[in-house]
Design a protein around this nucleic acid. Structure first.
Lengths: 193, 193
DNA sequence: AAAACATCGGAATGAATATTCCAAATTATT
DNA sequence: AATAATTTGGAATATTCATTCCGATGTTTT
């Protein structure tokens, strides 16, 4: 066949991250990844070294495509509080409309792998810090625009809201329905006033 | 050896749940469970049927020992809000003092297994409902005793606080430290006023 | 067109896995 | 003491798994 790579690396990582998302690291076999990606065994090992390395790259891919969603909210012409509302509404909608979606790959990775793989924990920790900082900046913006009047530093609310977000992902995997998730978001956002 | 069972079933389930807690379902082998419990292969299969069944029993055991911690807080002579404070302080303390503790077995089970095993999801969902109800009753108590003045039904705050609790478990597995976790609890509890 | 090169399919390997099975060991009952 | 009952240790089995390897296939370059 080809002299240069025939497959789209991003497509492969997307397919792989879907499988890992569904079944976890220890729960997915290489064979499942091969059928999901359409790759041959040799190509996979040639291009991705081994299962563990593919997992890490899948995590990074998932994180980046997650970042893009946050960025698209960030680019809207809204104040920080409205961005928070938009983002949480989007998360809840996604969880409700995709009941078979297995939560969040990064949360699942934190639960399954963080204590067993340092590199996994690094990806997760970086994600946490980035998202918290983004939330904090939104909150600062809302404060500056006098939409919110806070009695704690914005950073602390960023931590709190990230915690709320993680909770939502777990709750959706624990049988929580739409109204339950909406209630949580409502209380969390109301607490900013 | 004996004519009647020689091992303490609770001790076995405790040891097994520790291993599952550390490595997850798919990440632990029967051999690891045998060495952790000290049981022989035959005894284990004789008494617990198979790995999956042992996992479910370990989940139940973990859930019940968790329940006991909640009950011991509930039995204190405190108003509902103080019970919440005590409970969250206890959770954060435990997470901080046991940094190698792999979060919460039930949260990890939700992430790893809830979409692949109905019985697991049942245990998790039951736990969610029970804990939410307990929290709601504490909040109602605080309202009745005029410690809190709420503008939403107590049930909604129960959902919110359970969400906060799940978040803490994930955050601690994502590299969050003591002050970060305390900040989250502070904002969550302050939001009740 | 021929040589060089990268990818691919699939068989092969070897280790790890969950589970079964049987004989030995031990205690309770008669 | 002997029999019945039950657990246990460890060997045996049969799958599944991640990974390696090689010959075949196709593409680019000369």
């Amino acid at each position: 066949m080809p002299k240069y790579k025939q497959f789209d690396k991003d497509k492969v990582l997307e397919a792989a991250s879907n499988v890992f998302h569904e079944k976890g690291y220890n729960g997915t076999s290489i064979d499942e990844i091969l059928t999901a990606t359409g790759l041959s065994r040799s190509s996979l090992y040639d291009s991705f070294k081994d299962k563990h390395n593919l997992y890490l790259q899948s995590l990074e891919f998932y994180k980046e495509s997650n970042d893009k969603k946050f960025q698209s909210v960030d680019e809207k012409n809204l104040n920080g509080f409205q961005k928070l509302e938009t983002m949480f509404k989007g998360v809840v909608n996604h969880l409700v409309e995709n009941p078979d979606d297995n939560g969040c790959l990064l949360v699942n990775a934190a639960a399954e792998m963080s204590k067993q793989c340092f590199k996994t924990s690094q990806v997760i920790c970086n994600n946490k810090d980035e998202v918290q900082n983004l939330f904090s900046s939104w909150i600062s913006d809302a404060e500056q625009k006098k939409v919110l009047k806070l009695n704690k530093p914005a950073k602390i609310y960023g931590q709190f809201l990230y915690n709320t977000l993680c909770g939502l992902r777990v709750m959706s995997q624990s049988g929580a329905g739409k109204t339950e998730l909406n209630n949580v978001v409502k209380v969390a956002l109301d607490s900013l006033n």
